[in-house]
C-alpha cells in the first residue's frame, strides 16, 4: 500500500465512553474511485472529514502523497451532502470564489470566464446568474460539483452527494459524475449507502460493519467493465452477483460481523473479494 496516493493508517474516532470506529486501514490509488458503504452510525462521514482534513482522528493518521494530513487542502475537494453553496452568491460567484482561492492572482474577468466554463461542463450555462434559492436541488448540487471540479483537485471527496435528491435527478447526476471523473482520470472517494451507485461508480467498494466499534469488514473489487451506464448496468455480466453480495453484507453480515470478526481477519488487510468475476 506504500504506492497508494492516499494511505489511511489505523485511524479511529473515539468519544469518552464510546468508540465509533477504529483500526481503519485502506488506500486509494491514483485514478481510482473508491466507495465506502455502511449503515448510519458507523462513522462514514467522520472518515471523509478526516480525509478532507476537517477533523482529526483520535488515533492513527492519513498519508497523502507521502505526507501526513495536517489540515484541509485545495488538493482534496469536497462535494458536501447538502450543496453547501453560499446563498448570497450566484452560481457563477460560488464557483468563482473557489477559483479565486486556487488562483490567488487571477483577474476578475478571467475568474468569471473560468467559472462560466466550469458551469458549462455540468450543463448550467443558463443558470450562472441565478442565486441558489432560485435553483432546484439537482441544479444546486450540479453547482457544487462544478465548484469541486473547477479547482482541479488531486482528489475528490464526496459525502453522499446525491442522497437528498429524487431518484431521476440522482440518476442523471450519477452519470454526470461518472463522466467527469473518467474524463479527468480523477481520484475519488465517495460515501454512499446506495448499492447501485457504488456499483456504477466505484473500482473498489469498502464495506464497514455496524457501529459503534465499526471496522472495515472487507473490500469488494468491482470487476464490471467500463464504461458503465446506469441504464445498462444491470445487464453487465457479474452485476447480480456483485449486488447480491453487497446487499447480503448490508442486511445481515454487517450486523453479525459487528458482534464478532472472523479469527483470521486482519485490520491492515481486510479480505478482498471479487463476487462479480
Amino acid at each position: 500500500m506504500n504506492h497508494a496516493y492516499v494511505s489511511v493508517e489505523g485511524i479511529a474516532r473515539r468519544y469518552p465512553g464510546a468508540t465509533i470506529f477504529e483500526d481503519l486501514w485502506f488506500g486509494v490509488n491514483r485514478g481510482e474511485f473508491v466507495c465506502l458503504v455502511g449503515h448510519s452510525g458507523c462513522g462514514k462521514t467522520t472518515v471523509l472529514n478526516i480525509l478532507a482534513g476537517l477533523e482529526k482522528p483520535s488515533d492513527g493518521e492519513v498519508i497523502v502523497d507521502g505526507q501526513a494530513i495536517e489540515g484541509p487542502s485545495l488538493d482534496r475537494a469536497v462535494i458536501f451532502q447538502g450543496h453547501a453553496l453560499m446563498p448570497w452568491m450566484t452560481a457563477e460567484q460560488n464557483v468563482a470564489f473557489a477559483l479565486s482561492c486556487r488562483h490567488k492572482d487571477m483577474p476578475r474577468a478571467q475568474l468569471r470566464d473560468a467559472a462560466r466554463e466550469a458551469l458549462e461542463r455540468v450543463g448550467l450555462t443558463a443558470a450562472a446568474d441565478k442565486k441558489p434559492s432560485q435553483l432546484s436541488g439537482g441544479m444546486k448540487q450540479r453547482v457544487g460539483i462544478a465548484r469541486a471540479f473547477a479547482i482541479a483537485p488531486k482528489m475528490l471527496l464526496m459525502d453522499e452527494p446525491f442522497s437528498a435528491l429524487d431518484a431521476l435527478t440522482r440518476g442523471a447526476l450519477q452519470d454526470e459524475v461518472a463522466r467527469l471523473v473518467s474524463e479527468a482520470d480523477q481520484t475519488a472517494f465517495m460515501i454512499t449507502h446506495d448499492v447501485d451507485e457504488a456499483i456504477l461508480l466505484a473500482d473498489r467498494i469498502l464495506l464497514m460493519t455496524n457501529g459503534p466499534d465499526a471496522r472495515l469488514a472487507e473490500v469488494v473489487v468491482n470487476t464490471l467493465p467500463r464504461p458503465r451506464m446506469r441504464a445498462t448496468l444491470h445487464k453487465l455480466p457479474g452485476y447480480h452477483a456483485l449486488r447480491e453480495h453487497i446487499l447480503d453484507f448490508l442486511i445481515t453480515r454487517s450486523r453479525l460481523m459487528a458482534q464478532g470478526l472472523p479469527a483470521d481477519w486482519n485490520p491492515r488487510h481486510a479480505p478482498e473479494v471479487r463476487p462479480g468475476a
Binding site: 476537517l54 487542502s73 485545495l74
Partner: peptide
C-alpha cells in the same frame, strides 16, 4: 458547512 467550504478551499482567515 460554509466555514468548512472555506476551509477546504484554503481561503485565508481574512478572505
Amino acid at each position: 458547512e460554509w466555514l468548512n467550504v472555506a476551509r477546504t478551499l484554503e481561503a485565508g482567515s481574512l478572505k
